[in-house]
């Protein structure tokens, strides 16, 4: 009986999870294309520019992404045998890109021309590490940097 419930949960997790991932990636790539003209770098100094800097201020973005039941199941199995946990890779990748996009949105709203000195932090939050029954593990990506605007 328990096995049956587990199988149903994993199946639901697989279909719902892969559908959500597909749509999320489509939206990420679409928005990233809109931001290609906003230079983002982790260098401390902006590239040389004849223009004078008008202002520079902190911008940030974050996103918490939870894993679905299917990924949790595959990851628990993977935990036994060791090796690359490809199930979680896309979750972290999505969290990070989503957080970066939110930071870029914030910078654009303020009228920034570029973002420098970017830093990225990742943390596992939400009480659930894999294997605990209460709560699926979730990953937070936090991205911050300095938005710069030139005087025109």
């Amino acid at each position: 009986m328990e096995l049956l419930i587990l199988a149903i949960m994993v199946t639901i997790g697989y279909f719902a999870g892969s559908h959500a991932e597909k749509t999320h990636y489509a939206s990420i790539i679409e928005r990233e294309k809109a931001f290609t003209k906003l230079p983002t770098t982790n260098l401390k100094h902006p590239p040389q520019d004849p223009r004078e800097v008008e202002w520079a201020q902190l911008v940030n973005g974050n996103a918490v992404m939870a894993v679905d039941y299917f990924k949790l199941f595959v990851a628990s199995l993977r935990n036994m045998f060791g090796g690359r946990m490809s199930a979680y890779e896309s979750v972290i990748d999505r969290a990070r890109r989503e957080a970066t996009l939110r930071m870029q949105e914030m910078a654009r709203k303020q009228g920034a021309d570029m973002i420098i000195n970017l830093r990225i932090e990742t943390a596992s939050i939400g009480g659930g590490t894999a294997g605990q029954k209460n709560g699926l593990p979730s990953i937070e990506a936090m991205v911050y940097g300095t938005a710069v605007r030139y005087r025109r």
Partner: peptide, 24 residues
């Protein structure tokens, strides 16, 4: 600064290309 397009979903270097069911 030279703007570049983001990589397509299938060319993401940070996600393994194998199908999840295969690993499962």
């Amino acid at each position: 600064f030279v703007p570049k397009e983001p990589p397509a979903a299938t060319e993401n270097v940070n996600v393994s290309p194998n199908h999840p069911l295969h690993e499962f």
